[in-house]
């Protein structure tokens, strides 16, 4: 899952990036409104965490411009502005959620997970594929109710495939869910991760199938 953080406080941005990466998210960040707008416009994200008081372009203008361009990415506003009018204005302009600072990281994480599920029209945080269960909130996969030990990369690919079972994803598409600005992932990395994932899944519950020339999809057994 890819998250874009647009926040001008370097401390908040860094701690959020760290926390979300540890939760298995791929995180991009921008320090000002204009940079954030360019990121949001030219890259695909599952959720954008948006501060309102930003240098360059304020959060509400950014949101308005994104929606005007038809961008449907879920936007969670994270702001110190706590007035009802501020929240209403944010939601009215197209935000999906609003969280007031100071906040709990756990709550922010839960809200991000909810937005991701909503994006895949799935209200249940548990994805079931035969004996395979994936908890999208905990970022944890279970096989026969036993924890399946996956690396963040393996989990990211499994969750992406499981959220749209049967849908084929190219290596490049899957790579975008792994990469961030500092650490670019290539198709080779995806191949390696798919290989190790197949080994851990075995062949009894669900398997990652290759469609030559197109990519991978998840198939129920």
């Amino acid at each position: 899952m890819k998250v874009l953080i647009i926040e001008d406080s370097s401390s908040l941005q860094h701690a959020l990036t760290h926390g979300l990466q540890r939760c298995g998210y791929t995180v991009e960040s921008a320090m000002d409104g204009e940079e954030g707008f360019l990121f949001a416009r030219h890259h695909r994200f599952d959720v954008i965490i948006l501060d309102l008081l930003l240098p360059g372009m304020d959060g509400l203008t950014l949101l308005k411009k994104l929606r005007a361009l038809g961008n449907q990415t879920h936007v969670l506003i994270l702001s110190a502005k706590d007035q009802v009018s501020d929240r209403v204005e944010g939601l009215r302009l197209g935000a999906d959620d609003y969280l007031v600072k100071p906040f709990s990281f756990e709550e922010l994480h839960a809200r991000i997970a909810t937005l991701v599920r909503r994006g895949h029209q799935n209200k249940n945080p548990d994805l079931h594929m035969g004996q395979l269960r994936i908890n999208t909130f905990e970022k944890q996969a279970y096989l026969y109710d036993q924890v399946l030990k996956l690396t963040p990369g393996e989990y990211a690919i499994l969750e992406r495939l499981a959220l749209s079972p049967g849908q084929v994803f190219s290596k490049e598409q899957l790579a975008t869910f792994l990469q961030n600005s500092e650490n670019e992932a290539g198709s080779k990395v995806v191949e390696v991760l798919v290989c190790t994932l197949r080994k851990k899944l075995g062949s009894e519950s669900a398997r990652v199938v290759t469609r030559r020339g197109f990519g991978y999809f998840l198939e129920k057994q």
């Binding site: 406080s9 401390s11 908040l12 701690a15 959020l16 760290h18 926390g19 540890r22 110190a80 502005k81 706590d82 007035q83 007031v100 600072k101 100071p102 906040f103 709990s104 990281f105 756990e106």
Partner: peptide
């Protein structure tokens, strides 16, 4: 008052998040 609370909210949010992250991942 709104300005004061707003000025304090961001640093408090920073402190809270940093404390939360530090407590959650102390090994890093």
């Amino acid at each position: 008052s709104t300005h004061v609370s707003h000025e304090l909210r961001t640093p408090v949010a920073e402190l809270k998040l940093i404390a939360e992250m530090g407590g959650k991942y102390p090994g890093d």
